[in-house]
Write a protein that binds this DNA or RNA. Structure first.
Length: 249
DNA sequence: CCACAGATTCTCT
DNA sequence: GAGAATCTGTGGC
């Protein structure tokens, strides 16, 4: 279990409306859980994953945000754009992270997508992630565990080949990157999967003072693809990287 | 399972 | 020149 996992499966979904994104970041972060991030390669090949973890960056007053204090540069320009476009940034000298811009133009709010449950195009994801994962039982390439493909903001970008070229793209219509509506996300379905919506403090923002402890992270806890489990609990493998585990509600 | 160091380069001060 | 919304391998228990 623990996955819709079929590799050859063709996901049925359609793009969300622009209005879906025209809400504040905290609202969107929770709403995006269960939605599907779709990536279409130049050749028409598709990859897709169900969003299982998000973080909200709530605006100019948020010390952890790239737009804190109204900071506006070439790098974060997309944060000031209209709701429903992508904000992709490069960090730590080698990683990309994917965000969904929300609220309204001029109000720089965004949601960081931190983890996906792989749904379609897993073989392609493994190719893109080949080279990593040698510590996970020596599983490179075709043998890489499914939960190592998209369980982190930089991992999912590498798996789906998302980079700065996709910065500013509309996510509300089919294209290179877009977001589809959720399917079968009723509470009962989540329970059956052993998932529970939980909130926690954001990851990697210790520099943000009081904003570092605000619970602006949303997780489908219990899903094996979550980057770091909330609160501790039984966990396996590296899906539960211990650094900076957030507090529970 | 847990903790820590190293990688690697773009971005802004 | 410093720091970064991270990931991975290694080493200890």
């Amino acid at each position: 279990m623990g996955g819709l996992g079929g590799d050859t499966r063709r996901l049925q979904s359609r793009p969300l409306s622009r209005a879906f994104f025209e809400v504040d970041a905290a609202t969107l972060a929770e709403r995006l859980l269960g939605c599907v991030l779709v990536r279409e390669l130049a050749g028409g090949e598709r990859m897709a994953g169900r969003i299982v973890e998000t973080e909200a960056y709530v605006g100019v007053r948020d010390r952890a945000s790239h737009a804190f204090g109204g900071r506006r540069t070439a790098r974060n320009e997309s944060m000031y754009g209209r709701a429903g476009i992508a904000y992709v940034y490069f960090t730590y000298g080698m990683h990309h992270c994917f965000n969904v811009v929300c609220a309204s133009a001029g109000d720089p709010q965004a949601v960081l997508v931190r983890a996906l449950e792989p749904v379609e195009g897993l073989a392609r994801m493994r190719e893109h992630r080949a080279g990593a994962g040698a510590s996970d039982g020596g599983a490179r390439g075709p043998a890489m565990k499914e939960r190592m493909l998209c369980s982190g903001p930089a991992r999912l970008c590498e798996a789906m080949r998302i980079d700065r070229a996709m910065d500013g793209h509309d996510l509300n219509r089919a294209g290179a990157v877009w977001i589809g509506e959720p399917s079968g996300e009723e509470p009962a379905v989540r329970m059956e999967r052993g998932e529970r919506v939980r909130r926690a403090a954001r990851i990697g923002v210790d520099y943000a003072g009081a904003w570092a402890s605000r619970r602006l992270r949303w997780v489908l806890d219990g899903n094996p693809n979550v980057s770091r489990r909330v609160g501790g609990r039984p966990g396996r493998g590296r899906a539960g990287n211990p650094v900076g585990v957030g507090m529970v509600a």
